[in-house]
Design a protein around this nucleic acid. Structure first.
Lengths: 341, 341
DNA sequence: AACTTCACCGGCAACGAAGCCGGAGGAATG
DNA sequence: CATTCCTCCGGCTTCGTTGCCGGTGAAGTT
């Protein structure tokens, strides 16, 4: 009854069979008669034997778990992605070992390296650091799926699943332009983040298309938390030529912009958020968003990983999922409704 | 340059030393001259050697990672807990392997068992199933900290860190009573969940204290998603004697109740949410909540775990953290303001 | 009767790393 | 000069499991 250091060998001794037979039983392998299988199973239960995963993985050369490394769990986008991946993986019998990098690029390397050293069966990750070439060492060993953004310096190392950031950002900006706005501010993350860069590109492209100049002073980047977003918005509103519409390039920023708009008593300013978030449809006005559909991204990512686990090669071109604009009110406020202070 | 199957033995051969010396170098152990250490390190870098964690853990009998099993990442309470735990653990050099049970009690056993079989250094978990006695097998081997609710049939198996659910629920209910409400509905999870039970108990206690009878038809339990919460609220509003105030026993439910109140055009109904959520202060009316302070819970939990890792015994009594009520508006709507249909 | 076939089972070695001990060599000590 | 001591290092063994092979006995085949 002492601790869990019961080994396969102990079970074998107690059951009067060889360790190999016990191994066969716990792995459901053939070559064991029903009688002995039952008998061995009984002593396993009796001794409360649990196989040592490290020993197994060492021998087999694979950990059956799959690794997941996301950016941040405080972003609803990644949080639901994590849930969906876990759900899907478990259905197939894989346990998920997840971690998040929390905005620290060094942590990505560390965490991924750690999972790789555990020889996980597969890896789903959001590439946040500026270089994933370190994955080259694991090439061919471990299937990898990149989500949300492509990896850098890691061609052919895995499949990529992402949303159409450029297109959707352009559509969102056009949406605001259609309501008459021309002074459209953008609040977003660091521009060296792929998704942010693409969304800014879409924003600029839409403005250029409709012959509205880009006002650089209306672009606030490097905003990585709700608190900073709040400050950025305050700054914009206090400027000489404040914007009449705001485009937030991610949900985390929106979580700061919306409260700030409310606190400032400016529900009249048009607003579109890239990325949905809880309560967005219960606010006043309800928030118009680009729905990134994290569940869909997660589903295709896991399915893509499973394909690779089943021997299929990694898709060479990134899988780009279409995003749709969900008009709820805040993005449809006409220019005329904006009260100039 | 072929894959990552470079072993310690390969490094030893290339560096012209024994495997043992290489082992000493990668573990920073004493007994190696600066010269050879440097030389070994050089060939490690050259061969791009990475130790095999399974082999190491098998030999050492411990995985330096710490395991975390939470209920659901879609609940902001658990999501921020996960973030904080990870942050803290990494500071101390531990990688976190996280999973969530997603409301399935069987998954808890499976996931925890899995982490235990990996011989993680420590475990932080939300006990969701009705029995954690299976942890007895790991007793003394792996320090465990239970968060959010106590374990069952697992006395002395670990420390428990939780919030004062009973007291805070009673306070929230009293808060509504003070505004004149007597028909206060409760929407919550399954009552066999400890926290839910405690909160219902607090609710009942407050009603009894102030001599307001408990109307059983106003208590909707077994509500485990936002969608179900929405339905539950609809049902309440359609009843003959609808409530004038609603108390949601967790954030997940609130995420359904609030949109439903808005959709029904009933911002006049008083509302208090157990558990804060993003945007709660930007809604109209802003939502009065019981702040569970997940970050504080997570911090004390990890610190408690670290204490145990450093040899301290598990605290016998649960650590109960005080919770505070954050009045924002929705909970202070007076009875008089409610428009009877 | 001699042979193949098959289901069932056991022995041995190996996965990759660390623990334990022992040994060589130089410096310090008597 | 002999002895002790300490530093640096290597060999053998072990962790718990599975892969590879080989063996045994009963049943079926010619």
């Amino acid at each position: 009854m002492r601790a869990g250091n019961v080994t396969l060998y102990d079970v074998a001794a107690a059951a009067g069979v060889s360790p190999k037979t016990v191994s066969r039983v716990i792995n459901g392998a053939a070559g064991v008669s029903a009688a002995t299988r039952e008998q061995v199973q009984a002593t396993i239960d009796e001794l409360n034997y649990r196989p040592n995963f490290h020993a197994r993985s060492l021998r087999v050369g694979r950990d059956e778990a799959i690794g997941v490394v996301l950016e941040s769990l405080s972003d609803p986008f990644f949080a639901t992605m994590a849930s969906v991946i876990e759900e899907q993986a478990l259905e197939r019998g894989h346990v998920v070992l997840a971690s998040s990098v929390g905005g620290d690029p060094e942590r990505e390397h560390k965490l991924v390296q750690n999972l790789l050293q555990r020889q996980v069966s597969g890896l789903i990750m959001v590439p946040v650091s500026r270089d994933q070439s370190y994955l080259r060492a694991a090439a061919g060993q471990t299937p990898v799926v990149f989500v949300d953004r492509p990896a850098r310096s890691a061609d052919g190392l895995g499949t990529t699943v992402l949303g159409d950031d450029f297109g959707a950002a352009a559509a969102a900006t056009e949406h605001l332009l259609h309501s008459g706005h021309t002074e459209i501010a953008l609040i977003g993350d660091r521009p060296d983040v792929y998704t942010t860069a693409e969304r800014i590109r879409g924003y600029r492209s839409a403005l250029a298309e409709s012959r509205v100049g880009v006002r650089e002073d209306l672009i606030k980047t490097g905003v990585s938390s709700a608190a900073e977003a709040r400050r950025a918005l305050d700054e914009l509103l206090r400027s000489e030529r404040p914007p009449t519409a705001v485009f937030s390039s991610n949900a985390r920023c929106s979580l700061g912009v919306v409260p700030a708009l409310h606190a400032r008593g400016r529900p009249d300013i048009a607003f579109v958020s890239f990325g949905d978030f809880p309560m967005a449809d219960s606010l006043y006005p309800a928030v118009t968003v680009v729905d990134q559909d994290p569940a869909a991204v997660a589903r295709t990512a896991t399915q893509e990983l499973f394909k690779q686990l089943d021997g299929a090669p990694a898709a060479e071109a990134p899988l780009s999922l279409p995003l749709r604009l969900v008009a709820r009110g805040s993005g449809e406020i006409p220019l005329a409704a904006v009260t100039r202070p």
